[in-house]
């Protein structure tokens, strides 16, 4: 009859342990809720004062207490777009190099180097960007790009600006994109690539017709990942974007992003309304990240379902 007794302290301990883990797990829900609530309530003075116009207004005038997020949002989107545009093809090419072109020992070295790019903290990208890369942009790359037609590459070559930020962001997301793409390529079943190669395809054709379509969903997932990283990057951008609340057509022009505006102005915010406006900027950034996360996870879930089939 001994096992009829419920007295076992083990059973009690099991229940307590289980509840501790549940409380810990619940804390993540609580955190996300608290972040949303705190940002909203602290941004409220600005939300109620400026309403929806906050998003579309390009004003940023502490003297007249007029604030709008448009230039920060614009800068965030443009710098991220530049970063993705540069990093996507390059990371794809590096992933190709690592999986199909390079001999293993070279692939190992190159793979490590690319991974190490991710180990450099963003503040160091910022210092290097401001003190070394921006002057290089100003003296070498920008004068050369200025020869190209169109308004994108016009205006004074300041070194710092939207383009410089985009390039540095591209460097920073490169390792993440490369890692995911490498995994995607490595997952292409060898039967497929071998039979394509057996038909006389060149290795690029194998990649283009077999590996990329096969891993397309994974590649899109990688893009989401890179997007999420680039969009909230703070320190590196703060150093090199020039910090100006203006929307300019040229990529040479200085600008700002939500994160850089926060980093630059939050500690100096002396009026409650300015502080609220800055927190509302943060709230917008949070909303953007949330949307990217939801899309990415929905995408991944459909990916898993497809693979399970």
């Amino acid at each position: 009859m001994s096992f009829l007794t419920r007295s076992s302290t083990h059973r009690q301990a099991d229940r307590i342990f289980r509840w501790i883990t549940i409380v810990c797990a619940a804390s993540t829900l609580l955190l996300v809720g608290a972040i949303l609530w705190n940002l909203m309530s602290n941004a409220w003075p600005s939300i109620s004062r400026f309403g929806f116009g906050f998003i579309t207004s390009t004003q940023w005038n502490p003297v007249k207490s007029e604030y709008g997020a448009a230039s920060s949002i614009y800068g965030t989107l443009v710098s991220t777009a530049i970063a993705l545009l540069l990093a996507l093809p390059i990371s794809l090419a590096i992933a190709l190099f690592l999986t199909s072109y390079a001999p293993p020992w070279i692939a190992r070295i190159v793979g490590t180097c690319v991974e190490l790019l991710a180990a450099i903290p963003s503040i160091i990208y910022g210092m290097w960007g401001l003190f070394v890369f921006a002057p290089f942009m100003q003296k070498t790359l920008q004068p050369w790009l200025a020869n190209l037609p169109g308004p994108l590459f016009s205006g004074a070559a300041l070194g710092v600006g939207m383009l410089t930020s985009g390039i540095i962001l591209a460097l920073m997301i490169l390792p993440f994109l490369t890692a995911v793409m490498r995994d995607v390529f490595a997952m292409t079943p060898p039967v497929l690539t071998e039979s394509a190669a057996g038909m006389g395809s060149t290795s690029w054709e194998v990649t283009w017709h077999i590996s990329i379509p096969h891993g397309l969903r994974g590649l899109v997932g990688a893009t989401f990942l890179g997007l999420g990283r680039a969009i909230g990057e703070t320190m590196a951008v703060t150093f090199v974007i020039g910090n100006s609340h203006r929307i300019a057509g040229s990529l040479f022009a200085p600008g700002n992003t939500i994160a850089s505006t926060l980093a630059n102005e939050f500690n100096e915010a002396d009026s409650p309304l300015l502080e609220a406006a800055l927190i509302e900027l943060g709230l917008i950034l949070f909303a953007i990240t949330l949307i990217i996360q939801i899309l990415a996870q929905l995408w991944l879930r459909s990916l898993q379902k497809q693979q399970a089939r």
């Binding site: 993540t28 996300v32 705190n38 999420g228 703070t234 949330l290 990415a296």
Partner: peptide
């Protein structure tokens, strides 16, 4: 979902929070 979201949240927002 929240764990993934927290992983992807920009660190400056964590500071702000």
């Amino acid at each position: 979902f929240c764990v993934n979201l927290l992983m992807g949240i920009p660190s400056i927002l964590v500071g702000l929070f």
